[in-house]
Design a protein around this nucleic acid. Structure first.
Length: 444
RNA sequence: CGGGGCAUAGCGCAGCCUGGUAGCGCAUCUGGUUUGGGACCAGAGGGUCGCAAGUUCAAAUCUUGCUGCCCCGACCA
């Protein structure tokens, strides 16, 4: 991509309405623009990042055995009346009346719709276990939208639903998602801590929030530092591993503000292991058994010929919120650096030459070369002053830069990781360096 | 929903108190110079002053109503 052709409206000044750094950065780097209160357009730069996160989320869901489908944003109110949530959900649900005076709503979540799909199409325990998910825009009419896409009204969410014939199996599905979430956030470069949570309007009797550490987060959290050392890569999706994983987390103290009990914290966790910090909720999983299958009559046959209400769980990840959450977690007030797995471009080439001079030609040489080898690369081919080019790319947070200027010999390029000193490499070394960084042969 | 604030060029703001030809910085466009940390010179374009009504010879400015947005609190991926 040539910067001169890329739709990337940058803002030099800090927009006055943005109070937190992720919101400021997302506006300044041309990722998003507000359409109306709590509703945003995603511009090309931001959309690229959103898509990359979505891709990682999808890959881990698939790996955990969930199947992707796509449900609509607009739902009929009928099924919500069946489940009893039409009145219960409250004003957060956006209700719409169409020209035939039918009551519709913009889905804030999809338990009812997926249950309807399930009951209409699955009759036997033999079809279970089943996990279905989609990645779709949701609308929740927040009382007070704020902080950009962190707490907005229309947001992109991945939601998975599990169906099982027994409570035991259902809890196993729950644990699968538990593990999938840890792996997902880790891949995005974030440390997520699962915490027991209130079940809220979704309901049920088992629930975890996944909170990533960020000192600007909204929730205060209290944890035993030991939880930070649990590595999801040590666990697989078999029953033994999954049971051990939850046991491991249950060993250590971790709680959000509202569940925190300081006496227990002090007693159970040694002083040196106590960590009180802030975090951002990026995922929430629920086991709720027959809460929806009962009123909505989602029945399956058991091996002994009886009908039972299917056991269910639901599992959400705030995909669009994650974009902001990554910034909150990774921006250190000096520079932003996108994690390698979700960076919108693998590398940026900053050409300090002017139109059609030798430096510019040399810049395009390396650009073509890297691009041909499969990397996503952006080149600054504008006539801006060098200082303004550097500032722009610092803002964009692309983790690696190749700087082409007059100080270099014929085959040499400067290679710079954001936040580190530049090193000088020749053309072929740059390619191998990039392949090494991005694990290219493994196709990550 | 309660409390506070704002609305003037794409962005950030001044002008309003005390009514009288719509202004500044950045951005944009043209020409030229410049190029290793937000360059310089010269010129240009861009606004029914959020909407509606009222007062007045005259309203961005005063009055009333409406709408939108932001901030602080209770809820949430």
């Amino acid at each position: 991509m040539k910067l001169s052709e890329f739709f990337l409206p940058l803002i030099k000044e800090v927009p006055s309405e943005a109070k937190i750094k992720s919101h400021q950065l997302m506006l300044r780097s041309g990722m998003i623009r507000q359409s109306t209160s709590g509703i945003y357009s995603w511009l090309p730069y931001g959309f690229k990042i959103l898509k990359k996160i979505e891709k990682i989320v999808r890959e881990e869901q698939d790996r955990a055995g969930a199947q992707e489908l796509l449900m609509p944003t607009i739902q009929s109110s009928d099924i919500w009346k069946e489940s009893g949530r039409y009145d219960g959900y409250g004003e957060e649900m956006l209700r719409i009346v169409d020209r035939q005076k039918r009551e519709l709503l913009y889905g804030p979540t999809n338990e009812e719709l997926i249950t309807q799909i399930f009951r209409d199409n699955v009759k036997s325990y033999k079809s279970l276990p089943l996990m279905l998910y989609h990645i779709q825009w949701k609308f929740r009419d927040e009382i007070r939208p704020r902080f950009g896409v962190m707490r907005c009204r229309e947001f992109l969410m991945k939601d998975t639903y599990s169906f099982d014939a027994t409570e035991d199996d259902a809890k196993n599905s729950y644990k699968k998602m538990f593990l999938a979430y840890l792996k997902t956030f880790e891949k995005i470069g974030l440390k997520a801590i699962p915490m027991e949570a209130e079940t809220g309007p979704i309901g049920g009797d088992l629930s975890h929030e996944f909170i990533i550490l960020a000192d600007t987060g909204e929730s205060q959290i209290y944890i035993d530092k030991n939880v930070l050392d649990i590595k999801s890569e040590d666990f697989n999706y078999n029953k033994t591993d999954l049971d051990n994983l939850l046991k491991k987390y249950n060993q250590y103290y971790s709680a959000t503000d509202d569940k925190h009990k300081s006496e227990i914290f002090e007693k159970k966790v040694s002083k040196s292991n106590q960590l009180v910090t802030k975090g951002i909720e990026v995922g929430h999983i629920f086991y709720f058994g027959q809460k929806y299958s009962n009123p909505m009559r989602a029945l399956v046959n058991t091996p002994d010929g009886k009908n039972i209400n299917v056991y269910m769980g639901s599992y959400g990840i705030g995909v669009s919120r994650l974009v902001a959450a990554v910034i909150e977690a990774k921006y250190n007030d000096k520079y932003m650096k996108w994690p390698n797995s979700i960076t919108p471009f693998h590398v940026a080439i900053i050409s300090l030459g002017k139109e059609n001079d030798e430096i510019q030609k040399k810049s395009f040489e390396i650009y073509d070369f890297i691009k041909k080898n499969g990397f996503d690369v952006i080149i600054d081919d504008t006539n801006d002053s060098p200082s303004s080019k550097f500032k722009n790319f610092d803002l964009l947070g692309i983790p690696f830069q190749i700087i082409v200027g007059s100080k270099l010999k014929a085959n040499e390029y400067e290679f710079k990781e954001i936040g580190a000193d530049a090193i000088i490499l020749d053309k072929s070394k740059i390619l191998s360096k990039l392949k090494e960084i991005y694990n290219f042969d493994k196709k990550i």
